[in-house]
Design a protein around this nucleic acid. Structure first.
Lengths: 286, 286
DNA sequence: CGAAGTCTTGACAAGACTCAAACTGGGTGG
DNA sequence: CCACCCAGTTTGAGTCTTGTCAAGACTTCG
């Protein structure tokens, strides 16, 4: 009954200092002591909005050009296919910016609140204006787009190359790091990850049934445990082995094999790559 | 023997007018009549480089911060995992910009020439400078990053949700459109797509053997034909049906089913989504 | 208590991968 | 000119992973 409510006006405030906009994400770049920049920032954004879990912040195909700063709660960005399949392309934690898009295009994905969330919306034109007036913010904006791209490439690699087990391990490992910092994978932590198995399935491109089976397997192998939104990293080292961390390309190709080692055709690639250059194509060029 | 050569200095030129930088991609935004902007642009980039097919333009883990404009040829961006697996995250055609990244981070992927290519490199600091001096170029730069993000979301969806057949069809369909324009999917075309089945496999997250089988199937079903780098779209309509085109979320959910229609659990999602709002999560919020 | 959604498990089917072998075409070197 | 090699392609047979369907247990909320 609550989930269709668009957003409550109850807790609307209109100051960046209140809504934390200035301290997280995009607006971290604004210098507090620069009165003019602060004024420009504060006057640029719309009142803060509160959404209930499950509410749609914006939908695929819509035209709106607000850019959002996530203040509290988790948001999922996802693409829906008309036959009901859905891919969660990104899970956002507080501090994230989302919703940036070319002015002329409609939204290519939906943003849905996973938990109750608070967001700070900024109209596209205001942001464009602000970027021109506050160069540091322009740079921060670009930085965040570049990071988004990088993350997208990482997740594409996991989706395309990872086994189901690796995908789940990578997703949960990344989220643990996002919540608890890099230390999460050194020491092992217990963190709140407010996802259902169905959401994990939508993010990893698997079915929820299979996610369930693999979570059991991961638990039995004492790697990670996930129950009821509580994630426990039982063995950070085993988890790290499942997580691609493609960091250095072929530097330590000989070691660091997962499980029983790569199949023959993969070993062949390694051997080849060791030769001189990891050639994608080999047509002798002119 | 040719593939390890880094780049030939033979055809290095130093004018944007020559290297087409001004007319494609990033630099389309510079007004020819703005003498100052043109001068700034021309003085910003380094000499044009020529790479042979298979050569690495930059490698995952490197520190260089050049941004590139692709002038001619095809380039693949890909992430390599240390055990030999590889995901091609993007295939670039002339006019594309690539290599932008946060100043402080190392490259998260490798760029490899798929064919012989010509690129126009621009040092990161020069570009930053140029962006500040030429606002239109700053906007174009942002636009291209936003488009990259959008494309990444689309491809993630295809990788995560598509069957092998859909992935291959989507990849080749998109490339046909990139080469021949939107008309490619209306009329059906014959275009050059200089990929091997292995490269298609690396882009779709499949094995080359499986790609081969499915290309045969697609040929037998008279949808597309791919031989020797020549792509023929036999039946644009059947191809369109395989290609997700997630455009409008649930607008035409009833029609437009692929093949035998969605399985039961997907139909359930559609029914649910029709209700009121396509809820991702349902925890009644406070 | 009933409804709805999630989680869990089993049995089975389908999809994708693995390994192996043969075939293709273009280049290389004798 | 031919034999050879190479990378890419093609096909078959068998295995393993993942999806499908179904049913029951558990939670939360009204």
């Amino acid at each position: 009954m609550t989930m269709t409510r668009k957003f409550t006006g109850a807790s609307i405030r209109n100051s960046c200092a209140d809504c934390m906009l200035r301290y997280r994400g995009l607006c971290r770049s604004v210098d507090d002591r620069d009165a003019e920049a602060v004024a420009a920032l504060e006057s640029s954004h719309s009142p803060v909005r509160v959404y209930d879990a499950g509410a749609v912040i914006y939908g695929q195909g819509e035209a709106g050009d607000h850019v959002f700063n996530l203040i509290s709660g988790w948001v999922a960005l996802h693409r829906d296919i008309s036959d009901g399949r859905r891919q969660i392309t990104r899970l956002l934690l507080p501090g994230a910016m989302f919703g940036a898009k070319p002015r002329t295009q409609e939204r290519g994905h939906t943003a849905t609140a996973v938990t109750n969330v608070t967001v700070c919306p900024m109209p596209g034109p205001s942001l464009d204006d602000l970027r021109r007036r506050v160069p540091a913010l322009n740079e921060q904006f670009i930085l965040m787009l570049e990071r988004d791209n990088h993350r997208a490439f990482e997740w594409m690699t996991t989706l395309g190359q990872g086994s189901a087990k690796e995908r789940i391990a990578t997703l949960l490992g990344d989220l643990a790091v996002a919540v608890a910092g890099e230390a999460a994978l050194d020491a092992g932590v217990i963190v709140k990850v407010p996802l259902t198995q169905r959401l994990i399935a939508d993010a990893t491109g698997l079915t929820s049934v299979h996610v369930n089976r693999l979570l059991r397997k991961l638990r039995e192998e004492l790697i990670i445990e996930f129950h009821n939104g509580i994630l426990t990293i039982t063995d950070p080292w085993k988890l790290r082995a499942l997580t691609e961390r493609a960091g250095d390309p072929l530097r330590h190709a000989a070691g660091a094999r997962i499980g029983a080692g790569p199949p023959a055709y993969v070993a062949a690639r390694i051997a080849q790559a060791r030769g001189s250059a990891p050639a994608l194509a080999d047509q002798p060029g002119g």
